[in-house]
């Protein structure tokens, strides 16, 4: 049987991969996908904690799963707004490469 440590380790690996995507890639869309990976890693550890810490009545702690539900909703809204900003950015600058976007650079 997998233990809680297994799930947390997989969740940590998924978060690290998302972080690597954000840090290493230069395409703003791929950076966005890395953000999604990190959000999903957080969801995985929340669901694992909910299953491994049962309530006194012997059922999973559904508070954590409701929190995951909220995270998914907010992430969907964030993706919609973020992609709209990327499209507006592309219209203005004709690029999705973060190193070409240096207007605010001092």
């Amino acid at each position: 049987m997998p233990t809680l440590a297994h799930y947390l380790l997989v969740s940590g690996l998924l978060f690290s991969l998302g972080l690597a995507g954000v840090l290493l890639r230069r395409n703003i869309l791929i950076i966005f996908m890395g953000l999604e990976l990190m959000l999903n890693a957080a969801n995985l550890s929340l669901v694992a904690f909910s299953r491994f810490n049962l309530l006194p009545n012997g059922l999973p702690n559904y508070n954590a799963q409701v929190l995951v539900f909220f995270i998914i909703t907010v992430a969907a809204a964030e993706v919609a707004v973020g992609l709209a900003i990327i499209v507006a950015l592309f219209r203005a600058k004709q690029t999705t490469h973060v190193e070409d976007l240096n207007t605010l650079k001092f």
């Binding site: 233990t3 809680l4 012997g58 059922l59």
Partner: peptide, 14 residues
């Protein structure tokens, strides 16, 4: 280093 994490999945009551 955290031994509490190495529990297996507890059985659901139902």
């Amino acid at each position: 280093g955290w031994s509490a994490l190495h529990q297996t999945k507890p059985e659901l009551s139902d």
